[in-house]
């Protein structure tokens, strides 16, 4: 009868049986990306007979699988409204630390765990700078990008660590196949599936969206936004550490210059996939599709014999085109909709 009875009363029937689309508009973007990728594949299948082969697809998947694990972390970070420029350095750091402990006599599994823990510690330092000192994550991670790269060079003395003596059981992670499918791709798929689900459903990750969408409103909802940001920064660095260990198993070496410029590719993928640098939006699936688009483009450029000198320029233009297209589309949608009154 009165307002209060209804507030404490039982739930009324919810109209419509539509599934809860937490991501709303995001779904449209993912569909759009799939269509663009399919269109590109269709064109390429005419242009090159090698394109539509399992070998080529396997190569493309392999090329972005390990990076894809880092993309997951970056997407979460972008959603919370932060960024991490140090991921390339941290991937390399994990590799180098793992290699160092292995060469020092530790078994590769323990060495890997130490490497991942060390990467997480880098994340903890960065998170402290962001949440305690109050610096922007851009600046903090820029500094750590250089600091950590320096550590890699210092640990290795500037030369690659040769890890040919890694046992086959460990190399299997990076080089093995299960039923003809590379283990790397399987790990990647599992990580993506888990985090895509978590991001949509887990209570903890919901707070990531709240914090990124409107930090003040999140605080005024009792959310400890500092802790949420802390968690995201450490998560991203940890996933970079995991990727580093897999790279170590894949290459059987630890190169102190590995992963230079990797962060840009990763941020680009997440942004093409719908993550906003302002925070509050993004999806794992979208980011992975963004990564796939970049990979298809790269593969196409190689198959079309485009000069390597021009490939970066073309990739950059495609990034710009994809993001602009989406922006224009989004704005048009907003302009067409009735605007909330009084604004």
């Amino acid at each position: 009868m009165s307002t209060m009875d209804e507030i404490s009363g039982s739930a009324p029937h919810i109209r419509g049986g539509r599934s809860a689309g937490w991501r709303g508009l995001g779904n449209m973007r993912e569909l759009g990306l799939v269509l663009i990728i399919l269109a590109l594949c269709a064109v390429m299948s005419f242009a090159s007979p090698y394109f539509l082969t399992w070998t080529n697809f396997r190569a493309m998947l392999l090329s972005f699988s390990i990076e894809g694990i880092v993309v997951v972390g970056m997407t979460v970070l972008l959603i919370v409204g932060a960024i991490d420029l140090s991921v390339g350095s941290v991937v390399c750091f994990s590799m180098v630390v793992g290699g160092f402990f292995f060469l020092a006599g530790l078994d590769p599994w323990s060495a890997s765990l130490l490497a991942i823990a060390a990467s997480a510690m880098i994340g903890v330092f960065m998170a402290l700078c962001v949440t305690r000192i109050g610096l922007h994550s851009f600046i903090v991670s820029l500094a750590f990008m250089v600091i950590v790269r320096g550590l890699c060079l210092a640990i290795t003395g500037g030369t690659p660590l040769s890890l040919f003596s890694l046992p086959a059981s460990f190399k299997f992670i990076g080089q093995g196949n299960i039923y003809g499918i590379p283990v790397v791709i399987i790990i990647f798929a599992v990580v993506v599936a888990i985090f895509d689900f978590l991001l949509r459903r887990a209570t903890v990750f919901r707070k990531v969206f709240y914090t990124g969408s409107n930090e003040k409103a999140a605080q005024y909802s009792g959310i400890r936004t500092d802790r949420v940001k802390f968690f995201c920064i450490v998560l991203c660095a940890t996933l970079a550490g995991v990727a580093g260990v897999i790279y170590m198993a894949r290459f059987g070496a630890a190169t102190p210059t590995f992963g230079l410029g990797m962060e840009l590719n990763i941020i680009a993928a997440a942004v093409i996939g719908g993550a906003s640098l302002k925070g509050g939006s993004g999806s794992i699936l979208g980011a992975i599709l963004g990564m796939a688009l970049l990979s298809v483009v790269s593969s196409s450029l190689i198959l079309l014999d485009v000069s390597p000198y021009w490939q970066d320029t073309i990739r950059g233009l495609i990034l710009l085109a994809a993001v602009s297209f989406d922006h224009v589309l989004h704005n048009r949608r907003m302009a067409g909709a009735p605007r909330p009154a009084g604004q």
């Binding site: 809860a20 937490w22 709303g24 459903r201 887990a202 209570t203 903890v204 919901r206 707070k207 969206f209 709240y210 969408s213 409107n214 003040k216 409103a217 999140a218 605080q219 005024y220 909802s221 009792g222 959310i223 509050g280 939006s281």
Partner: peptide, 28 residues
């Protein structure tokens, strides 16, 4: 500071206590 304008209505309403609309396993 009051609402999350870009987020869905339902998610806005549960922001103060997401735990209330989550299962014991920590999923919404």
């Amino acid at each position: 500071a009051g609402v999350f304008v870009d987020l869905p209505i339902a998610a806005n309403i549960s922001a103060l206590a997401v735990e209330k609309v989550s299962g014991r396993s920590g999923f919404v």
